[in-house]
Design a protein around this nucleic acid. Structure first.
Length: 878
RNA sequence: GCGGACGUGGUGGAACUGGUAGACACACAGGACUUAAAAUCCUGAGGGCCUAGCCCGUGCGGGUUCGAUUCCCGCCGUCCGCACCA
């Protein structure tokens, strides 16, 4: 009989109301069940949720619902990463207050998330721009400062000389300010830093304990921290007059063994010596200014052509006082790394080689790679940075680099320059302290007061929070806090004299470095409720984009330690005692991508305004309204700026939340990108309807819901039960491993089986059908929860499937008595063999050799060897 | 430039730990139902050839192995991050 269509939008609303009334997802600590804290990286409230965002939350939700069914006490909260630049840009462009803009966006996005039917404990929701959140962050800052984990120092920013404002790296386009178009320059400012380097060693070593993190993220973090063992080597400057009294240059090197291959020293353009030298040589000043116009980003610096200027200064080689080397200023040497000075060994380092070739500096090979002849070996375009034998290195000749390293360092440790050892061993990290100062309004104010007499004074606890002034102006670039007429004027808390508030606000990465702690007790009157945090932490499954693999995750790992050490530790409970890592398991998911469209004027067009025609190479597009031609651009991650987004409301209105959920889980492995296509969505929508039909038919044909389990099952029923129990096993296993696309495929498979078994009959079949229907509904319930509730009630229940425990498969139904294995001859498959699962090796071999196709393939030749891997394969070698 | 990943039919992808490559889905073709269409259901299919069978095939080139999508080396391409986007 015909089954009426499932009206997803209408039924979904219904079930969401039911869940809300039952208050199913509110989490409470102190439960007898084991806990599971499941968290997706919280969103920036940019305006509206699109299908791209929804994937991340859907994955978390499937996992949370599954864990709930498996008997865990689940915490699955949601909040808003609400500070940041876009709100301030909106304020400038549209004259809305950043706060108002943000609140509006949050309200809209909250409704969108709710319409997806996520199993979220909304009572814990907060935004990082809530005073009640950031006031605790100010307290954390002060306590970290007291532990010397926050401090001030000078560092560089991108400065727009026309707008008189600091620019973010992304606001610098080809060296110019994005609004003014002015050439950006580097400028030094005194700014606040977190001492993340204090934890460099620990953050590196603890990576080994994160066995539920993707290997690639751990590798990236390890490289980012960049521990290297080397030596500090001091070089005496020959002409001190020219160097403004500076006597030496200290260099960090990981390769002291290659010292005899040195041909120059290079210093950063902002190295003190470079600054001193610039006073006498205008071309150095000019070069430094040119470098300062390159922007501050490492990618720009390192991909720029290697350039330099000879300072004219000369230094003495530490191993040979008669050997003088030139000192260059070079754009590829970074003041932030090591000492801001290097010695160049062109034969052993590609960057040094490129530089030496450009400026005709000597290239002396010092490491002879294995297999090369010392007499003929020459360096071409590629540096020899590998292992080998030392040559051209006097007393080091014949050693390997490791021995030479030790020899050089121990010699130089004993030598003195100006009364101190010439060299000493040193462990260096690439990791730099975290600069958190932002010269902007929409962020957490740094709770500091600057007093002419007392200096830097933290705001006392009883004067917290330092709130942002509502009446700031956004009509001009620059920091609204700085130009506010009264806000920064305060009395010094120590001496009472007139003083000035710190007008820098914190990097928004600070906000997101501890929000997962706050979720454990979002209304507590101190930053951390030790008991709640101790119960829920660590986060058992954290889900977010790979783009956060380094910064957000490393900052969070640091901040969690720092706040703990500053007196805000979770209370140790059993397993969680001495908790240092906030995220026990991490999953990095891929983006949802979509084609981009551009009008003939070069403007981005949203997909709904474009009509597509043809297929393959003949595909073309035009504007729906005007018919004007449209360029089909590359497939890129859905983003507002490129307009290639599918709005969630519209989607849900058309298809329903379950279709959206099913679509983003289907096909693509979750860690990889998924391309949004209309046909893909159609497929998901059809499946929703198909499931509804199949379950409805099962509800009619199956045994009554309390019918006793039959003693015996006929072959049809057994076949069905095998398929269902296997699917149950696989779906559970794959959700557990977050391989949602495979779980989805398993369910497609099962739906095919259910469809055909509806035509069948036999002993116990009606009971098997009911079991199949119920298990199937439970299996897809985490993914399509609304449809599952609808089907559950169709099957005659007035309970909620959301509250049902995950069924356990019967082990006996998971194994087949007879299996099929492939038979190969010389590694090529020639036939397959059906044989009892527990057949012995000899039986398998005999049966395989008797196969007609094998006899033919052997063609009378005697097998040299027969490899039998039980239950897998037979390979006959001739 | 540096660091990290990824690459399988027309398409998205599957393949547990080195053991039958292409599950499942989309698109396509044929059929059933229908006055017709939509919807639904059934069937087919990696490519090639001398088609009872054989050969080729997981970006390209090598290697290890009885056996490689899987491990190793080199290359090409794409994507992510690079410290003030979040």
């Amino acid at each position: 009989m015909a089954v009426e269509r499932y009206n997803a939008p209408e039924r979904e609303k219904h079930w969401q109301e039911i869940w809300q009334e039952a208050d199913l997802f509110a989490a409470k600590a102190d439960d007898k069940r084991p806990k599971a804290y499941i968290l997706e990286m919280f969103p920036y409230p940019s305006g509206r949720i699109h299908v791209g965002h929804s994937r991340n939350y859907t994955m978390g939700d499937v996992f949370a619902r599954y864990k709930r069914a498996k008997g865990f006490n689940v915490l699955h909260p949601m909040g808003w990463d609400a500070f940041g630049m876009p709100a301030e840009n909106a304020a400038m462009e549209r004259k809305v207050h950043p706060g108002a803009w943000t609140r509006e966006n949050i309200a809209a996005m909250r409704e969108q998330l709710k319409s997806m039917g996520f199993a979220i404990d909304w009572s814990r929701e907060f935004a990082t721009c809530d005073v009640d959140y950031y006031k605790h962050q100010q307290k954390l800052f002060i306590d970290m400062m007291k532990k010397d984990l926050a401090y001030r120092k000078s560092s560089k920013v991108n400065w727009d000389p026309v707008d008189n404002t600091v620019l973010a790296n992304e606001q610098v386009i080809d060296g110019r300010g994005w609004r003014s178009g002015a050439l950006v320059e580097q400028r030094e400012l005194t700014q606040w830093f977190f001492r993340i380097t204090h934890y460099a060693e620990e953050l590196l070593e603890a990576l080994d304990t994160l066995d539920q993190w993707p290997e690639k993220v751990r590798i990236m973090q390890a490289n980012w921290i960049g521990r290297s063992e080397g030596a500090m080597v001091r070089w005496a400057i020959e002409d001190k007059g020219a160097a403004a009294g500076i006597e030496e240059i200290e260099v960090f090197t990981t390769r002291p063994d290659t010292l005899f291959g040195a041909s120059f020293l290079a210093i950063a353009p902002d190295h003190p010596l470079a600054k001193a030298a610039a006073k006498n040589k205008p071309e150095i000043a000019e070069f430094a200014a040119e470098c300062a116009r390159q922007g501050t980003s490492a990618a720009d610096l390192e991909s720029a052509e290697k350039k330099g200027v000879d300072t004219g200064l000369r230094v003495r080689h530490p191993l040979d006082p008669d050997w003088l080397l030139p000192v260059w200023v070079a754009n590829f040497v970074l003041m932030d790394y090591g000492t801001g000075a290097i010695f160049g060994c062109p034969s052993g380092d590609q960057r040094d080689l490129d530089f030496a070739r450009a400026y005709d500096l000597p290239v002396v090979p010092v490491v002879l790679p294995a297999g090369e002849d010392a007499a003929t070996f020459e360096i071409g375009d590629t540096a020899a940075d590998g292992d080998g034998t030392m040559i051209n290195s006097r007393f080091l000749d014949g050693m390997n680099p490791k021995q030479a390293f030790d020899e050089v360092v121990s010699r130089l440790e004993k030598e003195k320059l100006f009364g101190k050892p010439v060299a000493n061993r040193k462990v260096n990290f690439r990791l730099r302290d975290w600069g958190i100062s932002r010269q902007r309004y929409w962020g957490c104010p740094i709770p500091i007061i600057h007093c002419g007499d007392c200096g830097v004074v933290p705001v006392p606890d009883d004067q917290l929070p330092v709130e942002l002034p509502e009446d700031a102006t956004f009509d001009a670039p620059g920091n609204p806090l700085e130009r506010h007429p009264t806000w920064s004027k305060v009395d010094c808390p120590q001496c009472g004299k007139q003083a000035k508030r710190e007008t820098d606000t914190m990097d928004t990465f600070v906000d997101s470095s501890w929000y997962y702690v706050r979720f454990t007790a979002p209304h507590a009157d101190k930053p951390v409720d030790a008991k709640e945090a101790g119960y829920w932490l660590p986060v058992d499954q954290y889900i977010g984009g790979v783009e956060h693999a380094i910064l957000h995750l490393l900052y969070s790992r640091f901040f969690f330690r720092a706040m703990t050490d500053a007196g805000h530790a979770p209370k140790a409970t059993g397993k969680g005692s001495n908790l240092r890592e906030p995220f026990a398991a991490l999953f990095t998911q891929g983006m949802v991508t979509h084609e981009t469209y551009k009008s003939s004027e070069g403007a981005w067009l949203p997909p709904e305004s474009v009509v597509l025609e043809g297929e393959g190479k003949d595909r073309s597009a035009k504007e729906a309204k005007t018919g004007a031609p449209v360029t089909i651009g590359p497939i890129e991650k859905m983003s507002k700026s490129k307009k290639n987004v599918i709005d969630l409301d519209e989607f849900i209105g058309n298809y329903g939340a379950d279709t959206a959920r099913w679509f983003v889980l289907s096909d693509s492995p979750p860690e990889r990108d998924v391309i949004y296509t209309d046909v893909g969505v159609e497929g998901a929508r059809r499946f929703v309807q198909r499931i509804w039909r199949v379950i409805s038919e099962i509800a009619e044909k199956a045994a009554a819901k309390d019918a006793p389990k039959p003693e015996k099952f006929g072959p049809e029923a057994t076949e069905l039960r095998r398929a269902v129990h296997k699917a149950l096993h696989n779906v559970g296993r794959n959700i557990e491993a977050l391989r949602f696309n495979v779980a989805v495929a398993t369910l497609y498979d099962l739906a095919n089986v259910l469809g055909s078994s509806l035509q069948k009959d036999g002993e116990g079949h009606d009971w098997a059908l009911r079991e199949a229907g119920e298990f199937t509904v439970q299996m897809f319930a985490p993914m399509m929860p609304h449809l599952a509730e609808e089907c559950w009630s169709r099957l005659g229940y007035n309970t909620l499937v959301t509250n049902q425990p995950w069924p356990e498969p019967e082990p006996a139904l998971l194994v087949d008595d007879e299996i099929t294995i492939a038979v190969q001859v010389n590694g090529k498959r020639r036939d397959e063999l059906k044989i009892a699962k527990d057949a012995s090796k000899d039986e398998v071999e005999a049966a395989a050799l008797a196969l007609e196709a094998i006899v033919r393939a052997l063609d009378g030749r005697q097998p040299k060897k027969v490899i039998v891997v039980p239950q897998r394969i037979v390979n006959v070698v001739v």
